[in-house]
Write a protein that binds this DNA or RNA. Structure first.
Length: 126
DNA sequence: TCGTTGACTATTT
DNA sequence: GAAATAGCCAACG
C-alpha cells in the first residue's frame, strides 16, 4: 500500500460527509468536486465502501471515521437514489429508512435533489 | 507491477 | 427511455 497515510483523500471525503446537515443529502459527484477532483465519483464511492462500521485495522491511525460518525447514508448517487448496494448485509432499504428518519422524503425510489441536495459546506442556502 | 473489481457519472447507441 | 461504453481512482490478489 502506498496511500493509507493518515491524510489520504479518503479522509477528505469523510470530513465532507460529516458536514452534511441533517435532512439533506449529497451526491458522489458533488463530493468529487469539493475535493477538487482529487477523487472521481467512483473513488468517493470507494471511500464510503471502505468506511468501517467501527474502527478496524483499515485506518487505525484515525479511528474517528466510522458509520457512527460519518452519515454515509446521506450520500446518494446523481439520480437521487441510494447506492446500488450489492451487499446483502447492507440493503438499500436501510439507507432509505435512515434518511426518512431524518426528514428526507423519498419520492418513489429517489429523493428530490432540487429540495434535499446539500449546496455545500460553505455555500449556505436559506 | 499488472489485472480485476467496485456504494459512480456522462455520453452514446 | 433503457442498455452499453468509456473514463475515472483506489484497493486487492
Amino acid at each position: 500500500m502506498t496511500t493509507q497515510k493518515g491524510n489520504s483523500v479518503f479522509f477528505m471525503v469523510y470530513e465532507i460527509v460529516m458536514q452534511i446537515p441533517k435532512g439533506k443529502v449529497f451526491t458522489y459527484g458533488a463530493i468529487s468536486k469539493l475535493i477538487n477532483g482529487r477523487l472521481s465519483a467512483q473513488g468517493v464511492g470507494w471511500a464510503l465502501n471502505a468506511l468501517p462500521e467501527r474502527p478496524k485495522k483499515l485506518s487505525d491511525d484515525s479511528p474517528k471515521f466510522h458509520s457512527g460518525n460519518v452519515p454515509w447514508h446521506r450520500v446518494i448517487n446523481a439520480k437521487g437514489q441510494t447506492s446500488t448496494s450489492k451487499r446483502p448485509d447492507m440493503p438499500e432499504d436501510r439507507q432509505r429508512r435512515m434518511l426518512e428518519s431524518e426528514g428526507v422524503i423519498f419520492s418513489a425510489d429517489a429523493v428530490d435533489l432540487d429540495k434535499y441536495l446539500w449546496t455545500g459546506p460553505r455555500a449556505k442556502r436559506s
